[in-house]
Amino acid sequence: MGYFKRLKNVSDFAFDYSTLKKRFEKMVIEEEKKKERKDEKLLVDLYECIQLHNTRPASDDFLSVCVPFLIKVALNREGNEETRKEVEIALLTLSNVGQYTHIEKEQFLSEINGIIKHHQAHHNLTQLAYQSAWQFFVSRLFYDESLEDIIVNELHFGREAASEMKELSKSVSWKRKKEEEEKKEEKGALIIGRWLYSIEYYLSHCKMWNGEHSELIGCIVKMFQASRDNYKEIHVNCLYLFRKSIEKKNVKIEDLLNEGAIDLCSDEMKRSILNVGIAWECLLFFLNVSMRLKEEDDDETKEAKRKELKRKIYEKMEEKGYEDSFVSFYGVILFLHGEYQDDDLSLNVEDYFANV
């Protein structure tokens, strides 16, 4: 139950207050109190049952014991199928240790670093296990910015996330028929959704940027295009990531332009007039484009580059008939403003089109 809840990102708040959780916790305490040799397999099973269902942050005392046990399981590099499954569940459980939970680096850094590097060299983990290892690691950025260099430049998160999503996309029936839409969700699509979730963490808390990230933006563009018809959640999450990207100063507008994100967002505005959430994300995306493009620079070279970029984006918008698209949306701006109660929505909307 916990495995599929985590894979599908489903929360069950009732578990936090259930007698079942209390029973599991009592069993953990009883086992840990034993002076003779403890049943580590039982403890790991109990830790996984509790942590896979948790919706609230676990206590520091629980995690200080639970995390080392789970990492010990995840370090097992035997090649048989049973071991790979045990490693997958251990890493999936660790990925549920949220970003707001502080864990000392000494408890995980060298081990998780080693797990990721070993997989990059030998491809010993399942696709879900590898994604889960990254999700656990990236979530630690919330409390420790010193992990940035390892994540970005040593382990190459941008390159790896893009590569994994490309591989997973091969197993997804993007063009499935309408009558198949209600059938069982494909595991590849679910893991892609988890990668997008990890990328959101990454964009929110990582200030570093390197050349690999344009590949990551390009991959999100491809996921956005592929998921449009039959995978709405992935489609909307990709759009949300475009907006998160433009909000971050370390993400270059050139990457969003060259990889096609700006084209896609402008196209989406023309076809999404009935979807308030998508309209909202597109408008916020272009509001942030506007604000970023108006940031003048004292460096003459950088300033010339900014002006050239503004010109390119203006020409693209003009070529696509963006003015007509904007006019069609202007009537719903007040509705969106009332729906979301955000004072920033109407700020500079017209200014973008007048001064870009």
Rank of each mutant, 00 (worst) to 15 (best):
L347V: 03
D144Q: 13
F62E: 03
P57N: 06
E185H: 05
N113G: 10
Y47R: 08
S110N: 15
D255Y: 02
I333M: 12
E215V: 05
H205N: 12
W209P: 00
A279W: 04
N288E: 12
K249N: 06
E32T: 09
S11E: 10
K187S: 13
T126I: 06
E82A: 04
E78M: 05
I116W: 07
D61V: 09
I273Q: 15
D39H: 03
Y3K: 11
E185R: 07
D324Q: 07
I199M: 14
S132L: 05
C49R: 14
Q341L: 07
H205M: 10
E303T: 04
V356S: 03
N96D: 03
L347S: 00
I217M: 13
Y322P: 01
S214Y: 01
F108T: 11
H122L: 01
S169I: 06
K249A: 07
H102I: 11
K26C: 05
Y47V: 04
Y17M: 00
E31Y: 05
R243G: 03
K178T: 05
F335N: 04
K307I: 14
S110F: 14
E296P: 00
Y17N: 11
S325D: 11
K33Q: 15
E145V: 12
T301Y: 09
G193V: 07
T126G: 13
L293D: 01
D298K: 08
Y352N: 02
Y240E: 15
F326G: 04
F24R: 12
S95E: 01
L334W: 04
D342N: 06
E32N: 09
Q99Y: 13
F137A: 08
W195D: 10
R6T: 08
A133W: 06
Q51R: 04
D144T: 10
D16A: 02
P68Y: 11
S266L: 12
N124Y: 11
N258F: 00
D343R: 05
E281N: 10
D299L: 05
S169Y: 07
H205A: 07
N355Y: 02
K166F: 14
F335S: 08
Y197R: 12
L264Q: 12
L293N: 00
G331M: 13
K21E: 01
A161G: 02
K105R: 14
L109P: 03
E281D: 11
A304T: 07
L283D: 00
G338K: 09
S64C: 03
G98L: 01
Y100K: 12
E86H: 13
K41Y: 11
Y240V: 12
V327L: 15
K8A: 09
Y330K: 15
G114E: 08
L7W: 06
L20F: 09
W195L: 04
W209E: 08
E145T: 13
K38S: 06
S59E: 14
D16N: 05
D144N: 13
K232Y: 15
V276Y: 02
S169P: 06
G338F: 02
S204N: 15
V28H: 10
K117R: 14
M223F: 06
M165P: 11
L141T: 05
K184A: 10
F285R: 08
K5R: 09
E300D: 12
L274V: 10
R271Q: 09
